[in-house]
């Protein structure tokens, strides 16, 4: 069986007009323009199975949004192929978009002046959703996302969190099989973020919707994604489960030691002190070379320890490492 979404050797570059600064530069550009080629994607391939929840991450300008735009059929690549839901997104755009949902965190697809429910009705007709199905779906989404209180409020008067929830509901009214979320939690407060994550998770688990999520928020990734694709400079740097990504970088662990009082502390062999503040010491070590139980007993034997805490390095560190080095 073929995958739900198959991407092969995708490439896209943009022509950007180069301007020289100053008056003469501006005058000159009237007659002669120079263009620069900026490669957004150079050779991207991956496959996504139905029901997966994939995180798609990379630094700004890495080609995340370009990929999402190509996958949703609104941008045509220079070369490469995409086969999604058995179609080519940009060639069979109208049929294809009927079966996908897209949310861009920074834009809204609802009608600014209309109450939320009117936007929903418009979308119902645009996507030709049968009335009974629409009512059931709209009811479900309203309950799940707690939209009841502002269904009759014009979109322009909603807070960002409320608007995001409505936008997500709007993208789901036609029961899409694939959902693209482009930075859905950008600018949201902690509570709204958690609510949104829960929703996405339940959509994926209960309804089997395939979700492709781009984000800069690593907590989103940790909370949601079983698989992470990392892209940088238009190429895929890493693709796999989150744990694999972690291990591929460094099997590093962090140990925080809280000492009794302000005593001397010398690090055991094969560990490094990252920093020390008062009676707290942060150590970094490799759990394969120095097994954690041995390290702890060694420290406890030679020091007066009040507390110990073992952690994995935050995912941000790992990602930053990949971004900087180009590969895991």
């Amino acid at each position: 069986m073929t995958s739900q979404i198959e991407v092969n050797n995708l490439a896209k570059s943009f022509r950007v007009a180069k301007r020289t600064s100053g008056v003469f530069g501006a005058l000159g550009s009237i007659f002669r323009r120079e263009y620069q080629n900026r490669v957004a994607l150079s050779n991207v391939s991956f496959a996504i199975e139905a029901g997966e929840l994939v995180g798609y991450i990379g630094p700004n300008g890495a080609g995340k949004s370009t990929t999402v735009k190509i996958l949703s059929g609104i941008l045509v690549p220079d070369s490469g192929t995409v086969r999604a839901l058995g179609m080519c997104p940009w060639k069979q755009r109208t049929q294809y978009v009927q079966r996908i949902g897209v949310v861009f965190g920074q834009r809204t697809q609802m009608w600014w002046d209309l109450p939320v429910i009117d936007s929903f009705h418009l979308l119902r007709d645009i996507y030709s959703v049968p009335d009974a199905q629409f009512r059931r779906r709209c009811g479900e989404l309203t309950d799940q996302m707690n939209l009841g209180a502002f269904l009759n409020t014009p979109v322009r008067q909603l807070s960002l969190g409320e608007r995001m929830r409505c936008d997500l509901a709007a993208a789901l009214l036609h029961s899409p099989e694939v959902l693209f979320l482009d930075e859905p939690t950008i600018g949201l407060d902690a509570v709204s973020k958690l609510a949104l994550r829960q929703l996405v998770k339940s959509l994926n688990v209960e309804h089997g919707v395939t979700v492709i999520l781009t984000t800069h928020d690593m907590d989103d990734i940790e909370a949601l994604c079983s698989r992470v694709i990392v892209i940088g400079d238009g190429e895929i740097l890493s693709d796999g489960p989150l744990t694999e990504l972690r291990n591929s970088i460094a099997r590093e662990r962090w140990l925080t030691v809280e000492l009794e009082g302000d005593q001397m502390f010398s690090p055991p062999a094969n560990t490094t002190i990252m920093r020390r503040e008062g009676n707290q010491v942060w150590l970094r070590y490799d759990p394969v070379i120095t097994p954690t139980p041995l390290l702890i007993s060694a420290i406890a034997a030679t020091n007066n320890v009040r507390d110990l805490l073992v952690q994995e390095p935050p995912i941000e560190e790992i990602i930053a490492h990949i971004y900087q080095n180009g590969q895991p």
Partner: peptide
Amino acid sequence: REGTVVYELLRPID
């Protein structure tokens, strides 16, 4: 100007 025109293209209509 704002690029929201992408949503117009994401709808299954002409």
